[in-house]
Design a protein around this nucleic acid. Structure first.
Lengths: 237, 237
DNA sequence: ATATGACGAAATTAGAAAACGCGTCAACTA
DNA sequence: TAGTTGACGCGTTTTCTAATTTCGTCATAT
């Protein structure tokens, strides 16, 4: 199609092309849904050959998984940035609010958590169990940290809190599918205040403790992000 | 089929037959799923003619809706009984625990709330908006009562609490689909303790207030049950 | 070395035919 | 006459096959 197909030389350029492919794929995915987007469509959208797409991902499913993985990565990265700007963001209720907004704001992730089969197909049903494992391990570690630093109410076990937290969080996300658009910030705040009362201890947290916890949490998130990046073969971005 | 088909005379007998039809329909629904159960199957299960089933419900969909409606009725009635035995059951967290167990214990309702399309088909998507309206009106009234009696935390609006409560409750129900069987009681307790901390005020409730609230709530539930019975044409049972 | 699109294989869709099940009602029983 | 029934018409769903689309590969091209 393109009259002057230039050859790529550096890993640099290769990575940039991968990003551009993901951009187009994400756009098409959002506009037409999983089933109606073919690899040819994606390639055509960039004016490149279909074979070139296959130089980056072995299968169609892996390409679309990568789109999704990148979206998750962005959300988690947004979370990490919030944490590095304000140590108080490591408190569970602030953490939850930021994460909730980071997800709800991204149409592809919203579609996933409302498991819209048209938008993501079987991708919703954990194609990538490895990432799921990493993320739940991260959650466990994070709750462990919270407990160690005396953030959590002490009349409930850590895994009990983790279970209840997740149910609450997913309940809010799911509800977000029905009553969307305006008031999203208010609902995020409501989630935060509910979590604060439900799961956090009432005692004040010393400034130093907060810093320790924030640092440890940032490390945790950093490791998670790195692992996800490596697993999905994505560059920083 | 039956060699001596006796004629039904009283409304009594008619109602009994309706119940038997619902029993068989519920059983088949549970064993084979919505799509695989025909009206003929239900009729055959009772040894009666298909036309007889249509003397009770105008369509197949209405029959299966009635099965579901009766199940809801049983759950709500269980709730009402709990309330009339112990006034403390009207406190939000106890109310939620009892309701959670009443639902989780009933396979058909579980299937509905995990919106298993195989079990209930499009029935899940509110065939009966009227009942939904009645139930959410009841929920609003109940939360109004809780607020009036000083049960709820006062730094949150009633509808905010209602919203968060529902998200939490449905989050727990949904989670119940993944990790079932044993430990159901523990999860119900966890839900209760989470709700207590998240939504209820910390001040002690006087015995008399509790009784008032319990009585009012029982009335509310009674009205709801009556309205549901009339709407679905079911007898007490 | 890198990129491409034509190609065979596999999957999806389209359309026609068969089977099924809903809801009705004329016939039947007591 | 009041109550019950199952055969029947008809719309829906399923099944089967043919045609089309899309996948993923690889020989060719630059």
């Amino acid at each position: 199609m393109s009259t002057s197909a230039e050859r790529l030389r550096s890993p640099q350029q290769r990575a940039e092309r991968a990003v551009r492919i993901l951009d187009v794929a994400a756009d098409l995915l959002l506009r037409h849904g999983y089933r109606r987007v073919s690899i040819d469509d994606v390639a055509a959208g960039l004016g490149i050959g279909k074979g070139t797409v296959y130089l980056h991902w072995k299968t169609r499913e892996q390409l679309f998984s990568a789109v999704f993985a990148r979206e998750v990565l962005h959300a988690v990265d947004e979370l990490r940035q919030a944490l590095s700007q304000d140590p108080r963001a490591c408190l569970l209720h602030n953490f939850a609010r930021a994460y909730f907004l980071a997800i709800a704001k991204r149409p592809l992730l919203r579609g996933f958590l409302l498991d819209d089969p048209d938008l993501l197909g079987k991708l919703a049903n954990s194609v990538d169990t490895a990432r799921d494992d990493r993320h739940s391990a991260m959650a466990r570690d994070y709750f462990g940290l919270l407990a160690d630093h005396g953030i959590l109410r002490d009349d409930l076990g850590v895994d009990e809190i983790g279970y209840a937290y997740q149910a609450l969080f997913e309940g809010f996300l799911r509800a977000e599918g029905a009553a969307p658009a305006s008031g999203q910030q208010q609902r995020a705040d409501l989630l935060a205040r509910t979590i604060e009362r439900a799961f956090e201890s009432e005692s004040a947290i010393p400034e130093t403790t907060l810093h320790d916890l924030a640092a440890a949490t940032i490390t945790l998130l950093g490791n998670l992000i790195d692992a996800d990046r490596i697993a999905s073969g994505l560059p920083e971005n």
